[in-house]
Write a protein that binds this DNA or RNA. Structure first.
Lengths: 133, 133
DNA sequence: GCTTGACCTTCCCGTCACTGGAACCCCCAT
DNA sequence: ATGGGGGTTCCAGTGACGGGAAGGTCAAGC
């Protein structure tokens, strides 16, 4: 398979696939003309990484997941540990975003949003705690 | 004020303050010795930007907010529009993260996490939809 | 007066995960 | 032979800084 076909099948841009090769996530063979020649296994790995990335795993984590994926003697505990850690990061991020959301929603709600200059949002940003009114 | 004092007062690293000057968010004067000489107004702007950043506004958005902050003839509607847009982005991000969280939590929950190689997490990443069992 | 150490300056590289674009090669059909 | 649609490499840029080097400055202590 050439890169365009694999890109379509894996749902990744060709640029991304070249990048993944560059950083060593995959090692596709080369045809005589210099084109990358992807095997089924390469495609599976790319799709795997694509899904892991869509769950928010970093490239470093994807590399580790891929290594476990390819290791028939892996312990599922190792995989789970990675996933649990990442899940905690996601949850922490959600907490952070919800805090932002709450603060911002309060400010937005307090602001008339008209043609006048008076603005609780700017006041809130100028001095926290003395947000509205 | 020198940079360390302002950094402490604004709660920002000195590096960040230099960066903000570099990109034109602030324009502190210089002492004869070449040191930055921050006025109260600079400090206020830095604290303002710091708070906006902590609410997740990008530098571009902070620049716009600062311009509104300094414009006594602003319309609060302009501020609100910026904030509403950003709030929508935050909420979209939360939705995305919650989707990741749900998927990942399912996978984690299905995985024994023992010494054996069988792993629903890896299966889920290999082929979505045929996640567990 | 000299040293020490804390503070300041600029400059450049590295981060993360790509993305865009230039310049060039290859293959097939007309 | 020519055109278009593949493919290739390499370089630069993104956002918002952080680390660290090389060097100037200042206040204190001896």
């Amino acid at each position: 398979m050439n890169i365009a076909e694999v890109a379509k099948a894996a749902g990744l841009p060709a640029k991304t696939i070249r990048y993944y090769e560059e950083i060593g996530l995959i090692q596709p063979k080369r045809s005589e003309n210099g084109y990358r020649a992807f095997a089924e296994a390469d495609l599976h790995k790319l799709a795997f990484v694509g899904r892991a990335r869509s769950l928010g795993f970093s490239i470093v984590e994807c590399r580790a997941l891929l290594a476990l994926y390819e290791d028939r003697a892996r312990a599922s505990g190792d995989v789970k540990a990675l996933a649990v850690t990442h899940l905690a990061q996601i949850r922490a991020k959600i907490v952070e975003l919800r805090s932002m959301e709450a603060t911002l929603a309060d400010l937005v709600q307090a602001c008339n949003g008209d043609h006048r200059p008076d603005c609780p949002i700017l006041r809130g940003l100028s001095a926290p705690g003395s947000g509205d009114a």
